[in-house]
Write a protein that binds this DNA or RNA. Structure first.
Lengths: 345, 345
DNA sequence: TTTAGCACTCAATAAAGGAGAGTGCTAACA
DNA sequence: TGTTAGCACTCTCCTTTATTGAGTGCTAAA
């Protein structure tokens, strides 16, 4: 559907994209000829550039400026021209060292991962918690003062959700333990969906023995079901400021506002979790009106059949795609390794 | 020690501070005379301003500009001239509505509180988790797959810390439950310090009965002790961007970098937790070289004898102190109310 | 098809010239 | 003695005007 370019055009497009990524300045025919000299004169390059512009791969900010890749240009570059750039040994070492969890806590691991990722790339990073079919691992009711109990829901991902609930008078810690047992026996290994549609009645029946606490148990399940299954960790927002495209404060403000809204981030990430491996979305491909001229390189990694996560780098469209893709690959590998260790798989 | 000003000087200083807070422009004698007219001419005001400058309450960005309050000027204003500005009924209502926790989870409540606080003030907000003598409420070991267990430490503040630990072969869920019981019996109601110095040996003795799991239990206690007791929630960073002093991107970058470092925030907040009630620290009073021209209005609220928290607003020195103090007061009241409800006191 | 040459365009930078806000000082006034 | 009007002076900010230079498109020759 999209016609392939001939070899020289490809070389020139690649040179322009890469030069622009490095310098953030529109690049002219002369620069290309001098810096990447293909043995042709600037004039020839100029002709080719005019062609590329007509085809929609380049745009000119104004007459008499050099050219800048269009979204289509980046797309072509990403699809056909770039090759992921392996991080060097020192960087790899750095990644390994940072991801090794000081604490065996999933949240902290993901946070660390994001931090190192954004340190290496100089862009913002996003990471979902491990999600998937949210399998319950354990449910625990713990006493918490008079008339209160703490509900703890432990998911197979190693994440813990907790909430305080009021409980009726006269419920003993022993009762709480009993309820925990019943719930555990029934719920462990199931997913939210399973519960919603099949198990609820069964539990209801079983617990009627403890009719005194029946209402509580039902409420409890409701709580467990209402657990918001996905968290998004973000980091490295300050690194994105070093990018010249964010010298503009207004744009920055919208971006920061969005990054503080977890829902929004969630949407951004889940919409990319379709395919395995690295996925790159450029500008409007993110399908979001609010953020202009942003790209996202993301990868969804699979830990087990029913547990996966998404790791993403968010930056300007003028992003160092090749480098970011390489780093992301390396970081994801280390993360998978570490998670396997922490979760004991 | 610091001499008090005569009444007219005070009025003029107050007018200058308030005008500058509102407009962010250096204010001149004429503006004062016109806008706040004290029945004297600009020339008189000019003389007074010259005095105030000599005394160090005002500074001039350059000759032929108006004057701007110095840190000392703000300090005098805050100490002697301003009166906290009660938020209007609509705002109060808004606060109440937002702080009412959708979920009964301390973290979420604090997050919400920060959000509304920064929405109303247009500055960044910080909130510590509830801290104090970190009393253990419950400790729970939950099974988590083969060779793993989840340690859950529930503090009296309603916060939960969790971590995965490897456990030796052959430990049954029943064993875990036993250990939990022993630990609970011993630790509940104690603080980290208590444990460190007195209880450790006792537990050791008791658990020797389960000598099979002794090492595990000891490790476990270590884990429990290593819980980092303080978290800092922050929010509203994007709102601070609307302040003209942050049009400068470099300054912004240092600020954002700092705000992403939890340790730093912790230090900032704890150093102010000395006195009860609202505390205002201006510029260098924050004793931090990295952040220039920032002020912090904070309040430490006490929930029980041994549980308190800190809520703070961070903005430019040109902060609307009177308004912020009023809002902070109102928000803290609502927060205390809500926390009491959630924690069931 | 490629290249050299040339006129043309346009942003960015610098220099120059007000305009305006504000001050300090002096002298007069109550 | 405190207050005020008047006035010269300062300095930023804005606008206008040149100037520069990178880069283009087009044409004609190789």
């Amino acid at each position: 559907m999209i016609p392939l370019l001939d070899e020289r055009k490809e070389k020139i497009l690649a040179a322009i994209v890469e030069d622009f990524i490095n310098t953030a300045e529109p690049v002219g025919s002369r620069t290309i000829a001098r810096r990447y000299g293909f043995g042709v004169s600037p004039a020839t390059i100029r002709n080719e550039m005019a062609d590329l512009e007509e085809m929609g791969y380049l745009v000119q900010p104004h007459t008499s400026a050099g050219r800048v890749p269009s979204e289509r240009g980046y797309r072509y570059y990403v699809d056909h021209l770039m090759e992921p750039q392996e991080p060097d040994e020192g960087e790899k070492e750095l990644v390994r060292k940072h991801i090794q969890a000081k604490s065996r806590e999933i949240g902290a691991v993901l946070q660390q991962t994001g931090a190192i990722l954004s340190q290496l790339t100089s862009y913002a990073t996003l990471a979902t918690s491990l999600c998937g079919r949210s399998v319950y691992r354990h449910i625990q009711l713990a006493p918490f003062g008079p008339g209160q109990a703490m509900v703890l829901v432990i998911l197979a991902s190693g994440e813990v959700f907790h909430r305080l609930i009021p409980i009726p008078e006269g419920i003993t810690p022993y009762d709480l333990e009993s309820i925990s047992s019943v719930l555990n026996a029934k719920l462990r290994g199931l997913t939210v969906k399973d519960i919603k549609f099949t198990i609820l009645k069964e539990i209801y029946a079983e617990l009627s023995y403890y009719h005194r606490v029946l209402d509580l148990a039902v409420e409890l399940i409701q709580e467990a079901l209402s657990v918001k299954e996905e968290r998004v960790y973000h980091g490295g927002i300050h690194s994105i400021l070093s990018q010249p495209e964010f010298k503009n404060v207004e744009r920055l403000q919208t971006l920061l506002g969005l990054l503080e809204q977890e829902d929004f981030l969630c949407g951004l990430l889940t919409s990319s979790s379709g395919q395995e491996g690295i996925s790159i979305r450029i500008g409007h491909e993110l399908q979001n009106k609010e953020i202009r001229e942003l790209s996202m390189v993301s990868t969804s990694y699979r830990l087990t059949d029913d547990m996966y996560g998404v790791l993403a780098v968010l930056g300007p469209t003028r992003m160092h795609y090749a480098r970011v893709a390489g780093i992301l690959k390396c970081v994801t590998d280390s993360l998978l390794e570490e998670l396997a260790k922490v979760l004991g798989r």
